[in-house]
């Protein structure tokens, strides 16, 4: 079967034409990618689509009340909504350094979520 995708690995956004197995839906080949990352993306997008998760958690004792966070690696796409929801119940205490682990093994994906910035104590 033939399908169209847009590569999201860089701002250029190449339009990809993918061939997949009629029966299993598995990836066969891709055209239209300007670089190797496009073919890696197409294969992943067909066989096991994934996305980075970015969201915020609550933080106490800092000048802001929200701390931006990011998953260390892309999550299976189907887990994204659940993962963002899980962030809502998290509250951390300042100080936080960028890269500190905020949640381990998020929604059973084996992937950690880390702080995307540092936030010191309000008093510092």
């Amino acid at each position: 079967m033939e399908g169209k995708l847009i590569c999201i690995s860089c701002p250029r956004g190449c339009e990809l034409l993918v061939q997949t197995d009629e029966r299993t839906g598995a990836f066969i080949s891709v055209e239209g990618n300007a670089c190797i990352r496009g073919s890696l993306f197409a294969e992943a997008e067909v066989n096991h689509p994934e996305r980075m998760m970015t969201s915020v958690v609550s933080i106490r004792g800092a000048k802001h009340c929200m701390l931006p966070v990011i998953s260390r690696r892309p999550l299976p796409k189907g887990k994204l909504v659940e993962a963002v929801r899980a962030m809502r119940s998290i509250t951390v205490e300042a100080p936080i350094r960028e890269g500190d682990v905020i949640a381990e093994d998020i929604v059973g994906t084996g992937i950690d979520v880390v702080a995307a910035r540092s936030l010191s104590c309000r008093c510092d």
Binding site: T54, P68, I70, E98, A116, R117, S118
Partner: peptide, 8 residues
Amino acid sequence: LSGPQYAE
């Protein structure tokens, strides 16, 4: 990177 990570 995310925006805050770039700034950091």
